[in-house]
């Protein structure tokens, strides 16, 4: 252990090692993306981070977020129509919004929605790039206005690249079309996970955030796949009580 390494460098190192560990044979892409947004928020001191992927129709859909905060999910969703994330995806470039108050002319609906909630003042969107084309974007939200330091942008892009690799190599890339297949599977997994969160929220009397935590903890403690457990909770007859015991 190098004493000169700062705390942040150590955390960055640990994050990449953990991500690499996740990407073993037959891993769960949703689980990887879920961890990745968590690290992004943590390492880039973002107050929230979210990842969107383009679906078959080219619309952006939220697949992972650092918190299951309904408002955050809505913001990510809203960007299907307009916002920094959509611009980032369409033009395949980093979009920086140091102060959203100054961006009202660019995305009136998005900025109004942000201001209504009063939570976030700056947004940065980093593209998930494949062969020069974006397949989605990583969004970083901050409560305070101000630019993201250049170093942080570089680190953020590295995390976005890990996400791209993770999505693409879930199975071996043998054909060009494999990208579509992975995206479809990831987006479909998201539907099952949302349903499973509902099952747990109802069963345990908790909110969606806690429901997702329960699901994550069970999956990781037992070395299972998020999408598999979610599927078993919705159609496979897995008793949600089993997940509460290990709480």
């Amino acid at each position: 252990m190098n004493a000169e390494l700062g705390d942040r460098e150590r955390r960055i190192g640990r994050a990449f090692v953990a991500l690499a560990d996740t990407m073993v044979d037959d891993y769960d892409v949703i689980d990887l993306l879920d961890r990745l947004v968590g690290y992004s928020a943590d390492l880039l001191s973002a107050d929230a981070a979210g990842l969107v992927l383009a679906d078959n129709r080219g619309a952006l859909r939220a697949v992972a977020a650092s918190s299951e905060d309904a408002e955050l999910m809505e913001l990510l969703q809203l960007q299907s129509d307009e916002g920094p994330c959509l611009d980032c995806y369409r033009r395949s470039v980093v979009v920086r919004v140091d102060d959203i108050a100054e961006a009202a002319h660019r995305w009136p609906a998005f900025v109004a929605a942000l201001e209504n909630r009063g939570a976030f003042r700056s947004v940065h969107a980093l593209p998930l790039r494949l062969r020069g084309q974006a397949i989605g974007a990583l969004n970083l939200f901050h409560h305070a206005p101000g630019p993201l330091p250049e170093d942080d942008l570089v680190l953020g892009q590295a995390l976005a690249d890990v996400a791209t690799i993770g999505i693409l190599s879930e199975r071996l890339i043998r054909r060009g079309e494999v990208v579509n297949e992975q995206l479809q599977t990831a987006l479909n997994s998201r539907v099952v996970i949302e349903q499973a969160k509902g099952v747990l929220a109802q069963h345990a009397g908790v909110d969606m955030n806690e429901a997702f935590d329960l699901l994550r903890r069970y999956v990781r403690a037992n070395n299972l796949r998020l999408a598999d457990v979610a599927r078993r909770l919705t159609v496979g007859g897995l008793d949600p009580a089993v997940l509460l015991v290990s709480r």
Partner: peptide, 21 residues
């Protein structure tokens, strides 16, 4: 179909009624 609340609510209702999605 892309509203995540519809999926979450589907999960809650299936647990409330003991039915499939």
């Amino acid at each position: 179909a892309t509203h995540y609340e519809v999926h979450q609510a589907t999960g809650m209702v299936l647990a409330q009624l003991g039915v499939d999605p």
